[in-house]
Amino acid sequence: MGTITFNDVSKIYSGQREVRALEDVSLTINEGEFVALLGPSGCGKSTLLNVLAGFEKVSSGKLLFDGTPISKPGPDRGVVFQEAALFPWLTVWQNVIFGPQVQGIARADYESRARQLLDLVGLSSFADALPVQLSGGMRQRVGIARVLVMNPRALLMDEPFGALDAQTRLSMQQLLLDVWQKLNTTVLFVTHDIDEAILLSDRICVMSARPGRIIKTIPIELARPRSIASLTSPEFVAYKAEIMSDIRITDHH
């Protein structure tokens, strides 16, 4: 469970100037696979995530989740937003149990799981804190816990660590590796950070902008379990060199 299929999907924003955010994107993400979507800002990678989440509709093509067309957002596809998007008036605990609560699940059926997850992301002692009292990294950990508590078949992460400082980002990447290696959920991870994409994913899809297209797919065959120590291995550096030549970063100096 958790297979994602894009079949010639296009997304066009009509307006004064038509924007082709996605053009003929075909992509299959298999059950339990971790795929990173890498590209510069404005290349349509967030659009791809938004149509998959059900926040926006595709203009043409087919988009299936476990064989069913996607029509609206739902707890089977847990989204982690860049700025966490926690409810500022709810405590950490209330934020984490929001999903099961609004789905009408009995308290006894989610309470222990929510506690475990809060423990897993290291925030047990902050259960009664408000989001504003947390650091950016802690907020993002709440964002991950509140999604995992719903036991989604896929995790959609939209540059979740993009707004964090370098050190916090590393510890969050390690946390995500640990969590994912335990759960093995399908993950689509949007990022513009090459290191992050290589470190986390099984496969990197490189996107280009206007029109948004997947120009290259690179399988990452680094051994698992990985950790942030992998960042300095020779294989890692080789992948990085390959990707950098692919996206042809132009040197302005």
């Binding site: 707890p75 596809r77 989204v79 998007a85 719903m150």
Partner: peptide, 27 residues
């Protein structure tokens, strides 16, 4: 109301009425 708060609540399975009561009203 911040768009991502609405999106987050829909993603977590909230219906229209719940979104109004638990997100739009407090926000």
């Amino acid at each position: 109301v911040e768009r991502n708060l609405i999106r987050a609540s829909l993603m977590m399975g909230a219906g229209r009425w719940t979104v109004l009561r638990r997100v739009v009203l407090p926000a």
